[in-house]
Design a protein around this nucleic acid. Structure first.
Lengths: 319, 319
DNA sequence: TTGAAAGCGCTAACAC
DNA sequence: GTGTTAGCGCTTTCAA
């Protein structure tokens, strides 16, 4: 069924039907009622592809996640995706999933299958991001970058790292070190800054993921006993390694929480970001961009700091 | 730019341009070359929305994942999604993400935003599945169901559970029990069957996830020392619980592997399914359905059994 | 308030 | 081999 059929059945023009459905333009209340009633009865719904063609859009938003090999074992991305999906749904848009591979992103952009993109996680010199900029496809980055003019939404990793480090240092009088991720990830450099804010000159083991045992060895050797992990993956690995070795005279905390940390005892203090909210916020910003609104360049989202059973909150929202 | 512009610039009709691009219909090699060259030079790509409208499709496939609250902490779904995406991309389709919520699925189906769906994980009386059947939207289920006429792709959970149980029983002369998930998940009932194939009359703790400690208590009390976990989430929880208690006189294995189990020592034997392959296979089947081909009703995928360092393979593919 | 007609960008049936 | 024409289903001027 098409609006033409409805028009025929009701003895009006399809223009009128279109107007009645969309609410654009004037239609008599009576006509409108009849159209809506007919739709209901016949379970009619306008064809979104046709609407899109007429409107020159796709009502699709591409959500770009790290490719398969780069995909860490964390629920983060899916939560982010679902957050974005919920927001997109509010505005009758859909989320299409894309891996961070240039040819995939290109195909979708070139053929206008998506109106804009959400780029989750960025590394330096991200070819996909450069492409999006070059092509002038509107996008929002979840994460941070030094690249000019990119709309970003991110947790306030620096503040969070600073605060958690400070709290841990106050609670435990131990020498602190950071087991960090790869240097090419902007977020890890930011975490390092926050960490150093509260623990100047402390040791940092970069790229701890590639060899957790070695990183742990060298940090312990230097007398570090308060170990901050950059994220949940590193932290989980670290906690397991310590369990295995029977190391107990240390304290562990993480700059990024996830369910996988909840299983350890004693509780691992950790920064909690709301991944769904990040996705939703990114989507919201993108939709506003697509509407021609100007958006803040940087949106920093609240975080919580989990400290065992009590949950202490420390928030900051800036622009 | 549109194909009309190219037609104008080259002094041919837009039909010819269309034919040159799509390869459908006869075009002289020379004309074709000119069109293609012009496209290259001007970075032209046909508008997929217009193509879709003309073809009466969306070139979208909905991938339905459990909603946010039901989402377990496993990388499974994202891997599945990416597998499906890769396959969809081969055929110039995109994957749109949908939570398993009836109103979302409805909206997309009604407005024809997707040509078909992949339904990942099913529970009994899945309202979404019933809706898809009712609406006659082509779909493929990743998982199993008793519902008639549903195209399913799944790991061979029964055989895998049977074999792993058998192997473990042969290696260790211990009394075996299964820590299972919810009974409403078809896959858990299937795992139970496989388990019982090799360990008749053994104990099964259903819904172990909701209270792992209690489940463990009762099973240990009954003298069970070989604990099979239904999946990675349960297994991880179980292993942590045992670590915490210092229980060491037991053996653990899992009917579903994931990275989160790789951290435990000693190695936890586990069934390995290829999640990406499952997504890809489901997508492939769906695309064939959309092409009007008939597809096997049930596709069971290969699995591997991981036993510490050595990786032993046991495959079965049925239809 | 309503309708006729043109158009969104592409495809395809039917001529030539 | 190429062009004409009529759609795909909806939106949107522009008149009436």
């Amino acid at each position: 069924m098409t609006i033409d059929d409805i028009a025929g059945a009701l003895g009006v023009s399809k223009t009128t039907v279109s107007r009645a459905i969309s609410g654009n333009g004037r239609v008599s209340p009576e006509t409108r009622r009849r159209v809506l009633e007919y739709m209901q009865e016949h379970d009619f719904h306008p064809n979104v592809i046709a609407q899109n063609l007429a409107a020159g859009r796709s009502s699709n938003i591409a959500f770009i996640v790290p490719g398969r090999e780069a995909l860490a074992d964390t629920p983060y991305f899916l939560r982010c995706l679902l957050g974005a999906e919920a927001k997109a749904a509010e505005f009758s848009n859909e989320i299409i999933l894309l891996p961070s591979e240039l040819d995939r992103v290109k195909r979708v952009a070139e053929r206008r299958k998506a109106d804009g993109a959400i780029l989750s996680r960025s590394v330096d010199n991200d070819a996909v991001m450069e492409y999006l900029i070059d092509r002038q496809l509107p996008f929002v980055l979840i994460g941070s970058t030094d690249r000019d003019g990119v709309t970003q939404v991110d947790g306030d990793h620096r503040a969070a790292a600073r605060i958690l480090t400070k709290i841990m240092l106050e609670k435990h009088d131990l020498k602190a070190a950071l087991l960090n991720g790869e240097r090419t990830h902007t977020v890890n450099r930011t975490r390092a800054e926050g960490f150093l804010d509260s623990a100047p000159d402390a040791d940092i083991a970069w790229d701890a993921l590639s060899n957790i045992g070695e990183a742990l060895d060298s940090l312990l050797e230097k007398g570090n006993r308060l170990l901050l992990a950059a994220d949940d993956v590193i932290c989980s690995l670290l906690a397991h390694e310590c369990d295995r070795r029977g190391v107990t005279d240390i304290k562990i905390a993480s700059f990024f929480s996830s369910d996988s940390l909840k299983m350890f005892r004693p509780d691992i203090p950790a920064v909690e970001f709301d991944s769904e909210l990040q996705g939703a916020e990114a989507c919201s910003l993108l939709l506003r961009k697509l509407d021609g609104e100007t958006t803040p360049r940087i949106t920093l989202l609240d975080y919580k700091i989990y400290l065992g059973n009590e949950t202490e909150t420390a928030c900051e929202t800036c622009e």
